[in-house]
Design a protein around this nucleic acid. Structure first.
Length: 516
RNA sequence: GGCGCUAUGGUGUAAUUGGUUAACACGCUGCCCUCUCAAGGCAGAGAGUACGGGUUCGAUCCCCGUUAGCGCUACCA
C-alpha cells in the first residue's frame, strides 16, 4: 500500500510552494488509495513555533487536504534517531568526529562553503580526509566514554556511485567523491535533518517521497543512510520549484504575504479554486484529458459543457493525477507588487472568479454566509424566510465578483443600509445633472407606487417617467444604481430594484438627493 | 569553486512521445451585445520553441557545447 507524507518544518506560515507539495502528495495518495500522512519537522527548536504548526494544520484543513493518521512530531523521535546513529557507529558505518565544532554565521554560509571548497582543492584534501575517520574503534569509544564531545558522521565509501530513478527527474547519479561524510548527530547529541527524515520515513513506512526539487541532490545522501540502516529505499518524486517573477526565489523575506497560504484564504479565495490553480503549477493533465474534461467537468454543473479542461474539481484532479505528467522546469508565480489589481497571479484571480460565478449556489451560500458573518452583515433570516431571496441575490451579484470579499465589499448595499458611496460614481451619475435633485424624489414616489413590484414593472415605471420628464432612461438608471448601491457598476438596474425592494429603493433614491 | 537540475509568446501549459500554418488558458488590443461593469460572442497582436552546433529525408522533441536561472555543497531544514 502506498504511503506518502507531507513534512513541513514549522518555521513561519505555510508557503504556497509547500501547499502545492501537500496537494500533490494528497492527490497521489487519493488516486492510488494510499495513505497521506502529516509530519511536522520541528527538529530546529529555535525556529519552530506552535503558531506555525497551527497555521500548517489550518491551511491543510482549509484546502480540504485531509490526512490519515495521527500527526507525527519529529522532535518526539529524537531519541530513536540518536540510537540509530549510535548503532551505525557500532556497525562501523559511521564514526565519531572529535573535531571541535566550528561556529559559523548563517548569513555567510554559502560564501564560506565556496571558500572552503576552493581551499580544499588547493591542498588536495577531499571528503575522506577526516583524521577521525579511521580511528580505531576502542580508542574512539574510550575518548567518548571519557566525555569528549563528538559529532557522528556517516562513513561514505571512497569509490563508487549513488544512483536512483526519480519519478519526475529520471535517472540520477552522483559520484561518492562528491558526497562528504555527512554529520548525522551534532556534538550536542542533536540529530540532523537527513538522519531524522530517513529514520521517520522508515518508521512511518513511507513508500513514496514526494517533495521539492531542492532536496534532489540530498537524496543521494539519504539513500546512503537507508542503506547503512539496512532499510528499503522508497521511491522518490521531486517537484519543480515555484519562483517569483524574473525567475527569482519566492521568499517570505522579499515577497512577504504573497507567499503565504493564509493570505489567499483571508483574501476570499475558494479552497477548490486555489487548489485548482496550484495544481496547474508544475503539472497539467494530458492534452487528451484536457479536451475530455470539457464534457465531464463538474466544477460548474450549470454549464459543464462549456468549461475549459483546466478547470477541475478536486475529484477530477485525483482522477487525472499522475507523477509522470509533472514537469521538470520551475514555474513562475506571476504577480506585480506595485499594482493592486495584480497583487497576485492573474490566473488565480480569474479562476477564483470563475468558480464563484459558476459553482452551484447551494455550495457557495455557506461561504458567503461566513463572509457576511465576519463583516457583520449576516441575518439569520437568510437561512429561513429570506432564503430564496438570499440565493437569488448571490446568483445576481456573483457574476461580477472575484473573491468572497466582494460579497461584503462591492456587494454590501444588498445586505444592509450601511454602505459607502464611490466618489467617482457620485460625480458621474448623480452630480452631472442638477435636475436630479427634483427628479429623484419624484422617481422614488413612482417606484414606491409600482404594483406589483417586479423587474418588469420597475422598468416600465422608470422608462415612463423618463419620457414624461424628458430625460434619457439611462440618466435614471445610472443615477439609481449609484443611489441604491453606491457604485457605478453592477447588475442590471431592474434586478437591483427587485433585490433591494420597494421601501429601501425609494428611501435610497430620496436620500441620494443630498449628494446631487 | 565543485556537482546537479532546467530552458516553448508576458505568465501557466499542450503538441498522438521525430512529421502541426507550434495548440489551449490567463493577461493584452479592438469590435459586437448593452442602463453601467462584468460575463458572453467575434476579430487580433504576441513564440518559430534560450543561443550555437550536430544526428536525421525531417527536429520543440535525440546528442554535444555555450549562456542564463535555480538548487545542493552547514554540527540549517
Amino acid at each position: 500500500m502506498i504511503r506518502v507524507r507531507f513534512a513541513p518544518s514549522p518555521t513561519g506560515y505555510l508557503h504556497i510552494g509547500a501547499a502545492r507539495t501537500a496537494l500533490f502528495n494528497w492527490l497521489y495518495a487519493r488516486k492510488l488509495g494510499g495513505a497521506f500522512l502529516l509530519r511536522i519537522e520541528d527538529t530546529d527548536l529555535q525556529r519552530s513555533t506552535d503558531e506555525s504548526t497551527r497555521s500548517i494544520i489550518e491551511g491543510l484543513h482549509w484546502l480540504g487536504l485531509d490526512y490519515d493518521e495521527e500527526i507525527v512530531f519529529q522532535s518526539a523521535n529524537a531519541e530513536q534517531h540518536r540510537a540509530a546513529a549510535l548503532r551505525l557507529i557500532e556497525a562501523g558505518k559511521a564514526y565519531r568526529d572529535f573535531t571541535p565544532k566550528a561556529e559559523r554565521a548563517d548569513a555567510n554560509v554559502k560564501q564560506e562553503i565556496a571558500e572552503r571548497a576552493r581551499a580544499a582543492s588547493h591542498t588536495g584534501a577531499d571528503h575522506r580526509s577526516n583524521p577521525f575517520r579511521d580511528l580505531a574503534a576502542p580508542e574512539s569509544a574510550a575518548r567518548a566514554v571519557a566525555g569528549e564531545p563528538f559529532a557522528v558522521r556517516l562513513k561514505i565509501a571512497p569509490e563508487g556511485r549513488s544512483a536512483f530513478t526519480d519519478a519526475v527527474y529520471g535517472e540520477q547519479e552522483r559520484d561518492y567523491s562528491e558526497i562528504e561524510d555527512l554529520v548525522l548527530l551534532r556534538s550536542d547529541g542533536h540529530p540532523l535533518y537527513n538522519l531524522s527524515v530517513v529514520c521517520d520515513d522508515i518508521e512511518m513506512r513511507i513508500t513514496d517521497v514526494i517533495r521539492g526539487q531542492d532536496h534532489l541532490t540530498n537524496t543521494h545522501k539519504q539513500i546512503l543512510i537507508y542503506d547503512a540502516l539496512g532499510a528499503p529505499v522508497p521511491r522518490f518524486a521531486h517537484l519543480p520549484l515555484i519562483l517569483a517573477p524574473g525567475g527569482k526565489k519566492l521568499s517570505k523575506r522579499t515577497h512577504g504575504e504573497i507567499v503565504s497560504l493564509t493570505t489567499y484564504r483571508d483574501a476570499g479565495f475558494l479552497p477548490a479554486a486555489f487548489c485548482n490553480f496550484l495544481a496547474l503549477l508544475g503539472w497539467a493533465p494530458s492534452g487528451e484529458q484536457r479536451t475530455a474534461d470539457v464534457t465531464t467537468s463538474d466544477v460548474a454543473a450549470t454549464a459543464a459543457d462549456e468549461r475549459p479542461g483546466e478547470l477541475m474539481s478536486l475529484r477530477e484532479m485525483v482522477e487525472n493525477f499522475s507523477l509522470e505528467r509533472i514537469h521538470r522546469n520551475s514555474a513562475i508565480f506571476n504577480f506585480d507588487a506595485n499594482n493592486p489589481r495584480r497583487w497576485t497571479d492573474d490566473k488565480a484571480l480569474w479562476m477564483n472568479a470563475e468558480y464563484i460565478r459558476t459553482m452551484p449556489v447551494a455550495e457557495l451560500a455557506p461561504l458567503v454566509r461566513a463572509e457576511l458573518e465576519t463583516a457583520g452583515l449576516w441575518k439569520p433570516e437568510y437561512e429561513t424566510t429570506e432564503r430564496a431571496w438570499f440565493e437569488r441575490a448571490i446568483e445576481v451579484i456573483r457574476q461580477r465578483f472575484h473573491t468572497l470579499k466582494d460579497f461584503s465589499g462591492q456587494g454590501r448595499a444588498y445586505f444592509g443600509d450601511e454602505f459607502e458611496f464611490d466618489e467617482a460614481a457620485v460625480k458621474k451619475n448623480l452630480q452631472k445633472e442638477p435636475r436630479l435633485a427634483e427628479l429623484l424624489p419624484a422617481l422614488a414616489a413612482r417606484i414606491e407606487q409600482t404594483e406589483p413590484f417586479t423587474m418588469e414593472t420597475c422598468e416600465a415605471t422608470l422608462r415612463a417617467y423618463a419620457d414624461e420628464a424628458g430625460v434619457k432612461a439611462g440618466l435614471f438608471i445610472n443615477a439609481a444604481r449609484t443611489a441604491l448601491t453606491g457604485q457605478s457598476v453592477g447588475p442590471s438596474m431592474f434586478e437591483v430594484f427587485d433585490l433591494i425592494g420597494r421601501d429601501a429603493s425609494a428611501r435610497r433614491l430620496r436620500e441620494a438627493v443630498r449628494l446631487v
